[in-house]
Amino acid sequence: MNPKLQVLPLLAILSLFFIGPIIIIFIVSFWDYTEFSLVPDFVFTNYVELFGSKVTYSVYINTLKFAGISWAITLLIGFTVAYFLAFHVRSLRWQIVLFLVCTIPFWTSNIIRMIAWIPVLGRNGLINKTLLSLGLIENPIDWLLYSDFAVILAFVHLYTLFMVVPIFNSMMRIDRSVLEAARDAGANGFQILFHVIGPLSRPGIAIGTIFVVSLIMGDFVTVQAMSGGQSASVGVAMNHKRALLQYPAAAADAVILLIVVLTMVAILMRTVNIRKEL
């Protein structure tokens, strides 16, 4: 069968619902708008306003902060969990079972997983009640829910999986005789971890990083829901403009965000050949 014919459905869907919309966004970002309608035009005002506004920079810094902190935590947890599964769990059956236990939440609703923090983190939630009854605090802690802390916690909760899976995959490909050789050559556990397993896990770390960073950079739901509307991200700002029907301004935002995210990913892609890693 002709391979070109076989990829045609994929190409058609992606052209229509991915490339087409991106082109539309690009075009509309140069349009003008009034309070009620879009005015086809070729103006740079949307970009000028975007780069001229201090808010843009603070929103980007805030988003990068979310991405950076969440990335570091998901990497730390993801690497540890993957390491445990790959090197400490010794039977394949248990590896599969525990791996699935880690991945099942991925197939459930993100929105529900966010809501699920309310009874845990809220003013009258489990954590505050426990701390109060233990006498560790006198008043409930307010910053557990609807705060930057909650946003990062939710990101870690939702996306650590995206680190675990590719890093575990990389680790499972490491030839066990390499580790043996390192041990025979006199390396201790930490040296093996840092000089053998770490570098060999790099493709997995890169893929996990691509997922986590791009998901967080474009996020607006998690930030909006978990910060209770008190914190901003690029996505939240964009969605706000969209809600005010300032589509061209939102489109200009989107174009810049796309460039930022694709640049970050392009740099990360240089360190890994995704097709080979699957």
């Binding site: 619902f17 991915f18 087409g20 919309p21 991106i22 539309i24 966004i25 691509i210 997922f211 791009s214 950079m217 474009g218 996020d219 607006f220 996505g235 964009m238 969605n239 969209r242 589509y247 939102a250 489109a251 989107a254 965000l257 796309l258 995210v261 694709l262 990913v265």
Partner: peptide
């Protein structure tokens, strides 16, 4: 990897 908000806004 393109942010979802772009897809939804674009469509």
């Amino acid at each position: 990897i393109v942010p979802s908000i772009l897809i939804t806004l674009g469509i």
